[in-house]
């Protein structure tokens, strides 16, 4: 019996990891908070540790209006030009 596979027939997207930073010292840091309760507070605390321990500078604080939707492409493109690395996370 011949069966069709029930999976997507879209070609698989090629995904690449960003190269790891050689050092965190003096890097420009971005924060993407998702709008959930406590998210901004928690991420700001984490960001402060990078500033304190590695001399990073916080360049961008971006927010998502909808916590569960992917960040808008325009937000990611803008942030990518301004920072060396980005932290994000849930605030629940």
């Amino acid at each position: 019996m011949q069966l069709y596979a029930p999976t997507s027939t879209a070609a698989k997207r090629k995904a690449f990891r960003a190269p790891a930073l050689a050092s965190l010292e003096g890097m420009r840091l971005g924060i993407l908070e998702n709008g959930k309760l406590n998210a901004e507070e928690m991420l700001a605390e984490v960001g402060a540790l990078f500033v304190q321990r590695h001399g990073c500078t916080i360049r961008t604080l971006a927010s998502k209006r909808n916590a569960s939707a992917p960040a808008p492409a325009a937000t990611l493109v803008k942030v990518a030009q301004e920072v060396d690395f980005l932290i994000t996370g849930l605030g629940d």
Partner: peptide, 22 residues
């Protein structure tokens, strides 16, 4: 993104075995 051809599986002709295959 371009589509790829749907994949066909050769499953047992016996219906119960085909259900198990799924």
């Amino acid at each position: 993104m371009p589509a790829v051809s749907p994949r066909i599986h050769e499953a047992p002709d016996d219906l119960l075995a085909a259900i198990d295959y799924c």
